[in-house]
């Protein structure tokens, strides 16, 4: 039988972390009065977890293929560095976001300041919950900046790992559309150990109603522990368009080095 104060204590803890996130989000929005913008190249399913003191260096990218000239050849890649300042807050700086549209060259489109907040302890609730809040600066003149926010969920069931992101995007600053654009991202994988590595075949799915572009496809990811104190993560795969607005296929790749 649990003491009557137990649930209240945990709920207060949760509420305090919600407040921290809200304050962080407001501070972020307060910094976004600058006129900027960026292209959307988010092919990633975020984890809600934050490990205090851990540093991450990450690169991920995509390339779309389609018979239609307005979609074929769209590509992009990002390079970022993150460091978890506390057990619940991990800021990440995208030092370069590069994009290429069909028929044009790759260009540096902007930078991004992203924050992950872990809201619950691992296993505290049915799923583990985090929150994402980011601000993207775009170098192209006359383009508005963009803020992103939304909850992140992760659930482990034996060898099966699942993630769900519900993200809202909003342009901010002069020239902003004022509309909220939603995207959902989901991943599921089956993890197993091979020597000092972990392999995880699975799938990823992206739901982008604002672009009328929905995609799903197989993914293979893995982890390798080169020194016992660091971790190399990678992921490759392809997602296929499931409606007419999406590219026929998009190749995805990601590599990340994590260390303390």
């Amino acid at each position: 039988m649990s003491p009557p104060s137990r649930g209240w204590k945990i709920n207060m803890n949760f509420a305090q972390r919600i407040m921290r996130t809200a304050v962080g989000g407001l501070l972020l929005l307060a910094l976004t009065g600058v006129q900027t913008a960026r292209a959307d190249n988010d092919f990633i399913v975020y984890s809600p977890y934050v490990y205090q003191g851990q540093t991450e260096v990450e690169a991920y990218g995509f390339a779309s293929q389609d018979g239609r000239p307005n979609l074929n050849g769209t590509a992009g890649y990002n390079i970022s560095v993150a460091h978890a300042m506390t057990s619940w807050w991990k800021p990440e700086v995208y030092v370069g976001e590069f994009n290429r549209f069909p028929g044009s060259n790759t260009y540096l489109s902007g930078y991004e300041f992203e924050n992950t907040f872990q809201l619950t302890d691992v296993g505290e609730y049915w799923a583990d919950i985090g929150f994402l809040a980011s601000y993207a600066y775009v170098r192209q003149p006359g383009q508005p900046a963009q803020a992103e926010f939304g909850p992140l969920f992760e659930k482990h069931t034996g060898h099966i790992y699942q993630r769900l992101n519900l993200i809202w995007e909003k342009q901010i600053g002069a020239g902003a559309s004022g509309q909220y654009m939603f995207r959902g991202a989901y991943s599921m994988s089956y993890r197993f150990n091979v020597g000092r590595s972990t392999l995880a075949p699975g799938l990823e799915a992206y739901y982008r109603p604002a672009d009328n572009a929905h995609q799903i496809g197989p993914m293979l990811s893995g982890e390798f522990y080169p020194e016992g104190r660091s971790e190399l993560e990678w992921r490759i795969g392809v997602v296929y368009g499931v409606n007419a607005g999406a590219p026929v296929r998009t190749l995805l790749g990601r590599i990340e080095y994590e260390f303390f």
């Binding site: 003191g53 851990q54 302890d121 296993g123 482990h156 069931t157 993890r191």
Partner: peptide, 20 residues
């Protein structure tokens, strides 16, 4: 632990709280 459906990184000289 796949048996417990849990995974968490613990920094050197650090500690974390989880629920099982």
């Amino acid at each position: 632990s796949y048996d417990l459906s849990r995974e968490v990184v613990v920094a050197a000289q650090g500690q974390v709280t989880i629920f099982i």
